[in-house]
């Protein structure tokens, strides 16, 4: 029996209504992502990168087409099922880090475990282990405003992987970072992919990051313009 792809999108369409205008953000996207892959979604602003990640992350619903996540069609999921799926199977990294400012680094990382009902001691141990894995063993008790941009994004990445999800969806994770830190963050994501076999889907328009990705999907005007694997030319 073959393992189903982690993401299997067929003809995804997403429209937004802006005043009296309907904007088609995605116009029939087909995409299959298998376990263990690292995928960069590239494209200019407005090409539909974020929209695609939102749909893959069950944060939004397509207007047409189908999406199957690890063998489960999202069309069959209600709000609660989508919430539980995100809680247990997905991790998110955002451009603006989106850490909870009132929680320490350790507590931010504990959050997905707390939502999953993991006990306090195990939560702490796992959160500290993951923070150490991303190089922040000396920052457990620091709040986000006491951390640099790169450190915040590392905490966000630790939060995204601490519950061992199937996939991490990172929407412009390096957009607020300098190029050196951006490279470190990307290296970290790729290393986590290797060590944990977690699917990593990154949206970016940073050419340096795109070039380093093992698989690149280029979106243009809501459609996939290119889907290439291997080292970039």
């Amino acid at each position: 029996m073959t393992t189903p792809p982690v993401f299997d999108a067929r003809g995804l369409v997403k429209r937004y209504i802006l005043g009296e205008t309907t904007v088609e953000a995605l116009r029939g996207v087909d995409l299959e992502v298998s376990a263990g892959e690292v995928l960069v979604v590239a494209g200019p602003s407005g090409s539909g990168k974020s929209t695609l990640l939102h749909l893959l992350g069950t944060l939004d619903e397509p207007d047409a087409g189908s999406l199957t996540l690890a063998g489960t069609a999202t069309a069959t999921m209600n709000e609660r099922a989508r919430t539980l799926f995100r809680r247990s199977r997905l991790g998110f990294v955002f451009q603006t880090f989106n850490l909870l400012p009132v929680l320490s680094a350790e507590e931010n990382v504990e959050l997905p475990l707390w939502l999953a009902g993991v006990g306090a001691r195990e939560r702490r141990e796992r959160a500290r282990a993951v923070l150490a894995e991303v190089g922040l063993e000396h920052r457990f008790g620091h709040r986000p405003d006491q951390l640099s941009g790169g450190e915040r994004q590392r905490v966000a990445i630790a939060r995204a992987i601490v519950h061992r999800p199937l996939a991490v969806l990172a929407d412009e994770p390096t957009g607020n970072l300098d190029s050196e830190t951006a490279t470190e963050v990307m290296d970290l994501l790729m290393a986590l992919n290797r060590s944990r076999e977690t699917v990593v889907v990154v949206s970016t328009h940073d050419p340096a990051l795109i070039a380093r990705a093992p698989r690149r999907v280029v979106l243009r005007d809501g459609r996939i313009a290119a889907d290439t694997r291997g080292a970039a030319a």
Binding site: E79, R80, T83, R86, S88, T96, N98, L100
Partner: peptide
Amino acid sequence: VRELGTLRALGTSIGQ
């Protein structure tokens, strides 16, 4: 609002 949206994205239920 963004923070609450983040919580929802991470799998926090509407009720929570």
